[in-house]
Each structure stands twice: as C-alpha cells, then as structure tokens.
Design a protein around this nucleic acid. Structure first.
Lengths: 192, 192
DNA sequence: CGTACCATGTGAACGACGCTCACATTAGCC
DNA sequence: GGCTAATGTGAGCGTCGTTCACATGGTACG
C-alpha cells in the first residue's frame, strides 16, 4: 500500500529493488551485489539499470532509507535530549543501530560515497540540523558549530570502533555502559 | 636495502607486494585488486597466493604498515601531549593522515576486518595504550578507560566524517581549525 | 478498435575479479 | 651433481558490473 504498486511489467521495480537490497543486508550480506539483488527480485541482471544508473545509485537509495530509520531510532531514544543523560541515550541508540545493522551502516557511511547525490546531501544536512538542535539545548554556552561537530564525531567514532571490533562489543548492555561512560567522561563539566 | 633482498626467483615477493599495494593506494586506487598488485609487481596473478592466504591477508599486512606510519605521524605532531592544545595537535595529525591517504585509511579501518589477525590486534592494542598514556597525562582526574574511549572515538569520528565528505574539507588549514575547535569544545573544562 | 510508440524487462556478451590447480622452474642441501 | 621443496606460471572456474540489441506489453492517439 505504501510504496509498492503493480503497474508495469513487474510491479514497482525501483522500490522492490531497494526493499530486496535491505533484506539481503539484514541477512548479513557483506558487500551486496547488484546481481544478487536482481536474482532475489526475480528479474534479469540488467533490469535494475532501467531505474538506477549503476550499483552506487541503488546503494544511495538504500542509504536514504537507512538514514530515515536511524533518525527514527534516535528520536525514539529521546525526542528532545537536553541533558548529558539524554544525549548518552541517543548515543547508545546510534551505536546500537550500527551494531544491529552493520552491513546497512557500512553502506551508509563506509563507502567513498557520491558527494553529488542529493539524497546523501539531504541526509547529511538533516543529521547536522538534528545535532545542532540537541547541542543548542544541552550546551547553550558552547560554540554551537564546534560542539556539534564534536558530538557527532564522538558518537560516530564510537559506532565505528565498536563495529570494527576495535572496542569489545560483547552484548548490548555492555556496549551501552561503555558508550554512556564515554559520553559522560567527555561532557561532565562542559554541561550547562 | 631495507626490506627487499634478491634471494628467490623474483626477489622478496611478500615485501614487494606490500610495497606495490601501498604505491597503488597512494595513487588513488580505490578498492585495490590483487591482480593489479601482481601485474604491477611483474608477477602472475596467482603468485601472491604463495605468500598470502587471500586478498584480505595482504590487506592486513598493508594495514600493519599503515598503523606504524600513522603512529609516526602522531608522534611527530607531539611526542608526549599533556595539554588540550597538544591533544588537538595530535588530533589534527590523525585527521590529516586520513585525508592525505584516504585509500590506505579505509583499508586500515573501513573493512569488516579479520579480528583474529594478530597484526590488527597488536595495532589496536598499541593505539589503545598510546591513547591511555595521553589521557593519563592530560586528564589525570578522569576515568581513564572511559576518557580514552571517548578521545579515540572523537578523533576517529572526525577523521571519518571529513573523509566521507560529511564535513567540509576544503584545505588542510580549514580542517585543522575545525578539528582544534571540536577538541577544545569538548575538553575545555574537563581539562585538569 | 487498432496501431504505433515508448517504457520496461531479457539474454547474451565483455572484461575484470578472486581463487584453485596441475605444471614448470629454480634454490639450497646432500 | 642430483634431489626435494619452495616458488612462480598459465589456464580455467564462477562471479561480478555493465552494455547492447532485442522482445514485450501498456498507453495514447487515429
């Protein structure tokens, strides 16, 4: 009802491809192949090219979905964080997202990434805006740009270090403790 | 004279392969192919398999070199940082390394990464130790584990965000300013 | 109601890749 | 000087991204 609508030969192929790609990523497929997506969607290997210029274009579309789902997770963790504790909760949600959907997270952030893709740019701006809002609320006395950059980098760095096994990620609980500790360590006295 | 020595058929192939791979990465080769390395080294595509189990094994060896060069850069930025300014200088060096050698940096950190590889584990421990030492010196009153995690994550996150174009990286100067500002924003009052 | 057109999907093909294996070659040891 | 094991070769397998000529079918227009 939402996106898919039977209208052409196959149905709504563009959306089907994105959905199928997400499925494969969820199943743990590290570096997703266009042919595998087409196969799973029941379509010839060349069909996707009618809708996406190349592999990267499909991945961009997939990333876009990932960004909105990440945003939902963050919003669910805390609608309008304003204390260090709130911020830590959001950080935990960010890291958990990365660990629960590692392949998707890598697609979103790990690849050289087409800077011109409007979806990517929009997503980046959305995140930037979100972080700025949090920072303005939680650290009214800090330099907004610098502090926003720092907060995003801290959280993003934590996600990648856990994801790459540079930090031990035994279970969600342990990760949460570690993330909260790191956020608090840095923020303790900067906090309003 | 350093590593290469003519001894077998070709010379010291393992070292030659690593050196060649680094060359290609330096020339901007995004996702390095084993065949390309072999070609450049003047050797059959199957030759590397005598010395490296697979592509990932060679990349691990390449990463190891990257880690030691990164460590050199950091040491050059400041031998024993103990103030926020010192730490900012190290952070700038870290980010500059990522931006000057993006392909190498991605090989080092971007891939799923074999956790069992002893080289990787050793490198991780080396970084951890280094960061702990800095933190103990610069923030003697902070919780060492949490603060170390936070500092590494902050710097690593900055590197990735710049690398992925999530933050504007027009020139080294601008990046340095931004990195220093972020580090200071976070650290200002935590500092002893 | 028919037909022409354009969007969509097909299948074969190309070159490149990672990796394996039977085979050639040479280095070092007796 | 000859033997053995280490080292390099070349062909080949299956997969990949991408392209292209062709088939198919919905839509719009006479």
């Amino acid at each position: 009802m939402s996106t898919a609508a039977a209208s052409y030969h196959h149905g709504d192929l563009p959306a089907t491809l994105v959905r199928t790609a997400l499925e494969l990523l969820e199943e743990g497929a590290t570096d997703l192949s266009l042919r595998a997506v087409a196969r799973r969607a029941g379509v010839a290997a060349s069909a996707p090219y009618r809708h996406y210029a190349d592999r990267e274009a499909l991945l961009s579309a997939v990333s876009a979905v990932g960004y909105t789902e990440l945003a939902q997770d963050l919003g669910a963790a805390h609608p309008s964080p304003s204390t260090a504790d709130d911020l830590a909760a959001v950080a935990v949600a960010y890291v958990h997202f990365a660990l629960r959907r590692p392949a998707l997270f890598r697609v979103m952030f790990g690849e050289p990434c087409d800077h011109l893709s409007p979806e990517r740019v929009a997503a980046t701006q959305a995140i930037t805006g979100y972080v700025h809002a949090i920072v303005a609320r939680a650290f009214p006395s800090a330099e907004p740009d610098a502090m926003s950059t720092a907060v995003w980098a801290l959280v993003h760095g934590l996600a990648f270090l856990f994801l790459d096994g540079k930090l031990e990620a035994n279970d969600d609980q342990a990760v949460a403790v570690r993330v909260r500790a790191a956020v608090h360590a840095v923020i303790t006295s900067t906090e309003k």
